[in-house]
Amino acid sequence: MSTRRLSPRAVSAAALQYLLLGLLAFLMVFPFLWMASTSLKSFGEAFAYPPTLLPRAWRWSNYGEIFNAMPMTRFLLNSCKITGLTVLGMLLSCSMAAFALARLEFPGKRLLFASTLATLMVPYQVTLIPVFILFQYLGWKDTHYPLWVPAFFGGAFGVFLLRQFFIGVPKDLYEAALVDGSTPGGILFRIYLPLAKPALTTLGVFTFMASWNDLLNPLIYIDTLEKMPLTAGLSFLQTQYGSDWPLMMAGAMISILPILAIFFVAQRAFIQGIATAGLKG
């Protein structure tokens, strides 16, 4: 494209294309800009008509106020803890099971793989109620356990994804290491996992987004305000300060800033992760 000389028609076509893409890009970011702008307005200015695009006076104190009105620091810490443990547990247990399914022979292997495929089709709402009753029976209501412990028992999506990846790794690697006296467990952690970074990234990104943004599970398990992650806390904030838009927008900003920061730093990993899942699916 760059070597060809561009005709005036091609130039105007390109200009039109940029214009449309730019307009759409503005549509995509506008809600975030509006969130940021509202979060810095005074209560009165937020309701002024016609609204101001940028705050007349930047009220950074809204952010201090939200930390006083709500245990925002706790929400943040809870979200970090739950999501961190969930990602760790999911990567660990899924890669172990996926490696076994891809490389080892053991009784029940085919049944296990068939069950994985079957489970992929079941919407989580079907298991929601029985699992809730199980955790209630264990006395785990209003604790964080129901939100991260299941991750340490793996998930069909992750096992399937990693198994597909491990199958693509040359089998000679496994056999050579066996001959050298390694155990299958050692081979998984020393050879296969370092090779599986792209697949682990994909699974990590999916798990991270699902856990950090999950609303339904915190909603049904957590009753105490101080134990809520950001999503449930924000939803509670809405019920308490439903009309104080600057305050709510400040809360929403705080809840999305960490994930936006991670996204902008690791956006290649995010986007590649999603794209691979789509192509390999």
Partner: peptide, 8 residues
């Protein structure tokens, strides 16, 4: 190892 790794 197969059973051990997939037991969780």
């Amino acid at each position: 190892w197969g059973l051990l790794l997939s037991s969780p």
